[in-house]
Design a protein around this nucleic acid. Sequence first.
DNA 1: GGCATATGAATGAATG
DNA 2: CATTCATTCATATGCC
Lengths: 149, 149
Amino acid sequence: MPQVPSTRWCPTPEQLMILEEMYRSGVRTPNASQIQQITARLSYYGRIEGKNVFYWFQNHKDANSVCKMEAGDAEEASSTSDATLRHESMAMVDATWAVPPCCRPLRTLDLFPTKSTGLKDECSTTSKSSCSTTTNYMAHSSLHLSLPK
Amino acid sequence: MPQVPSTRWCPTPEQLMILEEMYRSGVRTPNASQIQQITARLSYYGRIEGKNVFYWFQNHKDANSVCKMEAGDAEEASSTSDATLRHESMAMVDATWAVPPCCRPLRTLDLFPTKSTGLKDECSTTSKSSCSTTTNYMAHSSLHLSLPK
DNA sequence: GGCATATGAATGAATG
DNA sequence: CATTCATTCATATGCC
């Protein structure tokens, strides 16, 4: 039971930004060397491995349409939810998508903590305040499915 | 009284029954159209959205007769599957993989035993904006690596 | 009231 | 590139 920190890669905003920009630039499937460079560069902002980059581009079909729900069906609070469509199936059912507010609060707190002293764990559950930011990206819609409205 | 609008989907027994039956019937990953139909049908019994159906099937690996949820299975296999390199790009970046500790100290030493409940990791990354991102363009190596095999 | 558990939701990782 | 698997996160609910 490894409490090992072997966590899943947590893309930081900076990393994301760069990746997205690259994607926008036309990068689709970087080669090994490309990946290496990208990884090296991104690793500056946080832990990242080559495979992360690789998979990211693999999964990053299109970050388009941060579709929003249609105003006609839900009267939820609608906290600017953007349904991130991932698969075609989802794309179609999008109509029903009305994802409320589940964004991912990036807990990028300040610098690395020096928690030797009685500092509470930095990963405290709280502090999930603003999940705004542009954390939501990625919408894997594929094909030609009519996405969102 | 679940009057709260933004609540999570609350599957009704009827919905569950239908879903499970479908699952039993062999439905594993319904397509968009499938999802739509299912959703439509289930919506009769209560509010439900396409994503709910989608996720349900996604998560419903084996919720039926799960008998291994608890028990004293404290250890894990951790077979550390070797990453079978699939593409050459990956092969090359492989070096970057398995980069264990590297430079990112993400984990704190936990002296005291913490309950596993809500074990949150801290993938916090410094959102430092030292920036100075030297617009490092991508190298157009264009090597001879043919990706996929 | 909070703590424990269950499960929906999200997405990174992997495979075909 | 599409699809599926696995892990994690967040929220709801139940039991103290």
